[in-house]
Design a protein around this nucleic acid. Structure first.
Lengths: 206, 206
DNA sequence: TTGACAGCCAACTGGTTGGTTGGCTAGCGT
DNA sequence: ACGCTAGCCAACCAACCAGTTGGCTGTCAA
């Protein structure tokens, strides 16, 4: 057989090419032939290594999420900084955001897929970390806050066109928007000691 | 020719079927044959009425956004209520959210497409309304706030799986999440008179 | 009455696509 | 030295799919 690291190199090349292709065109739009060509290997290798198109996509997602988890520390004591860091990561890796969107659109209404336990566990850990940072016990309320924080960090990279339409596209505008998101988060968390589970807090002057 | 309203009925049936199909599978994943069958008309009618698959998608989006604009009043004096209303609309029309996501993934990096002026104008109006509600002049800052508000309203419907993973899926949980988003918004806007353009406001207790 | 045309459809087309097959090659154990 | 096998590839295949064609029908204007 070829040198052992050759096969893992093939696999890595395929994963990399697949990441680009899937990020650009989604699962249905991605072309297996293009992925193989971009990776510089034969199409059949995809089936040898991953089974089929969809499993390749799963491998790409898992890969991307592992990297993200390794790079971004838990919310910890400073949730606002967490949003800032997350947001910066997404800004630097727009393909990851696109992959997550394609995936979100793909699996709908399904129950928790096997293999999602890793994600659930990660979220549990983040929730625990966030709760500790807020000086509370982990609860549905802190989990909801975690969801909002995660979503806020995603927004600018998820909806770049909407951002362009709404706030224009001068240079530095994207950065300014991300800062605005962080400031918005800070403002929300600084009210009522970070608790806002129900009951509408005071409204702004009308 | 057949009765005049028959052709418009055909067109409407196609638009409706296309909305479902596109929402479910996206542009690349949608099947023209399926749309025609679901609408109960011949496939060729799609080309007669709309030109091609992509133009049909554009028509679907335009249709959906017109409806949304007609149903949701401007932010006006109560931005938090605006988020609540928007969020409720998206909750009631999940296909619209999915259509917007497919569209966001489809057109990337492009300049403002012709025909987008309508959207720009609508955003301008919303921004003016929001600024008035906040007692400010319309500015990049208010536009950024508008972006965040719009995004916050979208989040629960955009990322239902993430919500499930993070906060579970008990009944009423989705509603609770939307309320949390509204409360979060209220908390943010009640700080510093709704202004948070730059410079981080005080952080929550660590 | 008639002819022209818009709306509609069944059947067709040819390029594309995910996935397979059979054979070749190079490294490993013996 | 040598056969066995994992990794790889060129060529192939059948299903699929967006878009087209040619003909039929009912309506309206003249």
């Amino acid at each position: 057989m070829p040198p052992k690291d050759s096969t893992s190199a093939t696999r890595a090349a395929l994963l990399d090419a697949a990441r680009r292709e899937f990020a650009a065109h989604g699962i249905a739009g991605a072309r297996v032939d293009r992925i193989a060509e971009l990776a510089g290997v034969n199409k059949e290798r995809i089936y040898g290594h991953f089974g089929n198109k969809e499993k390749l996509f799963d491998a790409v997602i898992t890969d991307a999420l592992d990297d993200l988890t390794a790079q971004i520390a838990l919310p910890g004591a400073d949730p606002v900084d967490y949003v800032t860091r997350l947001s910066a990561y997404y800004d630097k890796h727009p393909e990851v955001v696109r992959l997550l969107m394609w995936e979100a659109l793909n699996y709908r209404g399904q129950e928790l897929l096997p293999g999602q336990e890793t994600r659930v566990e990660r979220c549990r850990r983040k929730n625990a970390s966030l709760a500790e940072g807020l000086g509370q016990e982990p609860s549905a309320g802190t989990a909801r806050t975690l969801f909002v924080l995660t979503g806020l960090a995603l927004l600018p990279s998820m909806l770049p066109q909407l951002a362009r339409i709404m706030v224009g596209e001068g240079d530095g505008e994207h950065e300014a928007l991300r800062e605005h998101v962080s400031a918005f988060t800070a403002a929300a968390l600084s009210t009522a000691g970070g608790r806002h589970d129900s009951g509408a807090p005071p409204l702004p002057p009308s």
